[in-house]
Amino acid sequence: MNTANTITNPVEEVIPDKTDRFSFVDYIGPIIVFVAFIAVWYLLSSVVLPEQKRFLLPTPHKVLTDGFFVWHSGERRGLQPILLSLWDSAKIALIGLSITIVVGMSLAVLMSSSRWLERATWPYLVAVQSAPVLALTPLIRALIDGTRTQRLLVVVLIAMFPIVSNTLFGLLSADKSQHELFTLQGASKWTRLVKLQFPAALPNIFVGLRISAGLAVIGAVVGDFYFRQGGVVGIGAQIDVYRNRLWGAELITAIILASTLGLVVFLFFGWVSRRAIGKWHITNRGH
């Protein structure tokens, strides 16, 4: 190569990498909200609620002492049984989410490659999305054996839509000229999918994943209310028991832990997303 012909001094500046610096502002907000939340809670449980109804919402410190700090008491009270049932629901949510991801993304790929299929499937996806799935419980029970499978089905039905819609939207988001670049090289449909459409879809896929993951947890918890047969049960069933027996502290403890599971899953996928695409993807934030 003739180096005399090379150009060695591009003067345009490289735009510096904007790294996320530690910022106080990022932490002060959640702390303020947390303090306000606890304050409102105290207000509700010791001022607003009439005396005879206060057992419904014990004060925060009572939830700690009677819920979180009791390991095991009676058949179903205490942190240990709550954590066990939470683990049971977490497994349902994760298995259900995995099924949703595989099925949902495959469906999106098929829909993206066939306008006909997209047209044919879309209305039904929207319908499933807006249908009150839990109203179908008698039908699900009649068609499918085994509470585990029934619970998984609820998770899949509830979590499916965001994965399919976001993946599909992402797969169709590549520029026309980027497609033409591939056309010019005679790229196959598969090559185009793997090297263009799928990477282009990743930001949307992660958005869908985060939403679906949250929904999967909800699906697992509420599915418990309807599908269970004694034995080890999910957190939803546990919550139902506490609710019926008016065990306020345990009820609140279980609810907080169920929400925490949702939060953890949400944060986890946010973290995966930043790891996977943070280097090149620009979020549409003004600052």
Binding site: P10, E12, V14, I15, P16, K279, W280, I282
Partner: peptide
């Protein structure tokens, strides 16, 4: 990555 480059680059 492309987002780190100017239009000319």
């Amino acid at each position: 990555y492309p987002r780190q480059l100017s239009g000319g680059m």
